[in-house]
């Protein structure tokens, strides 16, 4: 299992971020490096790419507000 984690060093302060899109569905097969989600903080859209190839398990849905370092999904 490989965690899909919100980066911790991209913006200053402890602002939370919102998941604005999942581009792959729960249980879908994803390839390492594929664009699978987007998050937004302070008018900046960050791409979240698959950290490994496998099956996607989504832990937080679109519109969820999460902290830096949060695990929002897994690839198994």
């Amino acid at each position: 299992m490989t965690a899909i984690t919100i980066p911790t060093d991209l913006w200053e302060g402890d602002d939370e971020t919102v998941i604005t899109s999942w581009f792959a569905s729960e249980g879908a097969s994803v390839s390492e490096g594929a664009l699978i989600a987007e998050i937004m903080t302070a008018k900046t859209q960050y791409e979240i790419r698959a950290p490994a190839s496998g099956r996607l398990h989504i832990l937080h849905d679109v519109d969820a507000v999460v902290a830096k370092g949060a695990v929002i999904g897994e690839v198994t």
């Binding site: 991209l10 008018k43 900046t44 859209q45 960050y46 791409e47 790419r49």
Partner: peptide
């Protein structure tokens, strides 16, 4: 107005 996009 300003905005950004970041990609790995």
């Amino acid at each position: 107005g300003t905005a950004q996009r970041w990609a790995p």
